[in-house]
Amino acid sequence: MPLLEVYNLKKIYTTRFGGNPVQALTNVTFSIEQGEFTAVMGESGSGKTTLLNIIAALDKPTSGEVFLNGKNIVSIKEKEISAFRRDNIGFVFQDFNLLDTFSIKDNIFLPLVLAGKSYEEMIELLKPIVARLKIEDILEKYPYEVSGGQKQKTAIARALVTKPQLILADEPTGSLDSRSSSELLHLFNEINNDGQTILMVTHSIKAASFAKRVLFIKDGEVFHQLYKGSMSNEELYQKISDTLTLIATGGAHSE
């Protein structure tokens, strides 16, 4: 059974003041296996963030189903949603979304505190992650005192600390310079090699070329997908680049 299954997802935004309804997703169907590292690409406005938000149960689709581990998260009760999200999904955002009022350590602890863990448990969960991300030295600092790369690492640590089934990342490299970006992407590779499933939305071909699979979204539908297979990053990079050109010039569906 795939870890994540998305069927015929449709999302129409209706604006409050009688504006035209916006169709963000038309008909999205795909699935993700346990342990996959998938990138989602598409033009600005193609509905990538919308898709992630629905998978994270932050938003409801107009129609369609989303199953995580066989559980339909669309029909999940409002009351259980947050607990569900906390236990199953780790979110990494483009703009980090760290809280200025918490130290780095407390930011990472936040989902654990929400889950009602004891301090000892939290420390146990924190240690290995902090060591892997190499952020031991900044734990007592505050978000405004650390670099963008360190902030993003903190956000990843926060996403990982609950040992989620699925990591969702919305343009995680968007605010980083190229050095921090590659560091982060290598990190994602490592985590993925340990068995962590990752779904990442990105604009960057380079970022996407780190993934094992790339989904292309156009006009609210999955337009195309690429498997890395035995390709190197560079080869995948070239392929992605070709596909994007094809999309831009209005090429037909393939596969």
Binding site: A56, K79, A83, R86, D87, F91, F93, N97, L110, L114
Partner: peptide, 15 residues
């Protein structure tokens, strides 16, 4: 902003 973030991290509306 703070509460938006907290919700994204898994805090329910009630919390």
């Amino acid at each position: 902003e703070r509460f938006e973030i907290m919700q994204k991290v898994g805090m329910s509306r009630d919390e």
